Amino acid sequence: MSQIIAPYITTWSAEQEIPSRVVERPGYGVGYADELLGDRDAHGVLWQRPAVRHEAGRPEFGKVHPLRQRRAMRKLLCQVCAGPANQNDDGVLWLLRDFQGDWPNWPEGMACTEPPVCVPCVAISLRLCPALRRGAVAVRVRASEVAGVRGALYRRGVFGPVAAQDVNLAYDDPSIRWVVASALIRELRGCTLVPLTELTEQYDAVQAR
């Protein structure tokens, strides 16, 4: 594996959002004044317009690139190296912050914006990600339907639409017409927690061959 400087989904300093004027589309919701065909996904939802200059400048850790996150979630790619996420009979592998106290059987039913991972990148993530060092859980997920988006919800304003709040919305929610999306959501179902030591030992065994 090549040296990983920053996760695939990380935004780099040269990838600033392209200035775009958000306008109301009467009877539809929001759009861009100079909207292009690629600005919406297959469900008709409007997306942020970041520049795409991967590895140009410096990585902005903690800031996720919307288009790379969307690609990794759609194709179930590892969020760190962009290779295929690990998958076995128990499901696709996710590495998440530990919020087991949030509800019984967490993360069952969770609306997740974090793409999955491969086994080699588990150790890298645990070592380099400050958030995961505060507590991490590996999860096998049998079903992860693409369910909606996270983004800025707009409201009508005096001079045009105004961003009101960040929200998670399902694709069948009528309010999604007023969202500029920044992340794709998968709903995690059929979740099984996996000991982190099992994954690190599995990786070490492969490396030792």
Rank of each mutant, 00 (worst) to 15 (best):
P174R: 12
G31S: 15
W12I: 01
I9A: 10
F159Y: 07
G44M: 12
Y171S: 01
R127Q: 13
V158W: 10
R177Q: 15
R70G: 11
L153M: 12
V137C: 11
R25K: 15
V122E: 03
R150V: 12
N105E: 15
C118P: 03
Y8I: 01
N88V: 10
A85K: 01
C121A: 02
F99H: 14
Q202F: 03
R74L: 12
V22N: 09
R142T: 15
D204V: 10
R186Q: 06
E108I: 03
E187G: 00
Q165M: 11
D173S: 13
R68M: 12
L36E: 14
P50V: 02
G101T: 15
C191Q: 01
L128E: 13
C112M: 15
V180L: 07
G62F: 13
R209N: 07
E35S: 02
G44I: 04
L199R: 02
N168R: 08
G83A: 04
A163M: 10
E187Y: 02
L184D: 01
N168F: 07
P115Q: 10
R68Q: 06
P26Q: 10
E17R: 08
L93Y: 08
L196H: 11
R68I: 04
A170N: 06
T192Y: 09
D39P: 01
A181G: 00
S13G: 13
S125M: 05
G83W: 07
G190Y: 11
D173Q: 01
P174E: 14
R49H: 03
R58P: 00
G148C: 05
R209E: 12
T200S: 05
C112V: 07
V158T: 13
W106P: 07
Q207W: 07
R49T: 11
E17H: 10
N86Y: 14
G44C: 03
R142W: 03
D173M: 04
D173R: 00
V30Y: 11
P130Y: 04
L169Y: 11
A6F: 12
A33E: 15
W47S: 00
G151Q: 07
P104F: 02
Q207M: 09
L188I: 12
Q3W: 07
T200C: 02
A163F: 09
T197I: 04
V179E: 14
P195D: 15
G109T: 06
W94Q: 06
V180W: 01
V194R: 03
D98T: 04
D204S: 05
Y28S: 08
G190V: 12
I18G: 00
Y203W: 08
W12F: 10
V23I: 15
D41T: 02
L67F: 00
F159E: 14
P115K: 05
C78K: 01
R186F: 09
L37K: 03
E114M: 03
V194W: 09
F159A: 10
A131L: 08
Q69W: 01
C121T: 04
C118K: 03
S175Y: 05
A6I: 02
T197V: 09
F61E: 09
A33L: 14
D98L: 02
R127N: 07
L37C: 01
R140L: 07
R150M: 14
A6D: 09
A147P: 01
V80L: 02
A33H: 10
H54V: 05
C112F: 06
G83P: 00
P59K: 06
C78R: 08
L196M: 05
G62N: 13
P26W: 13
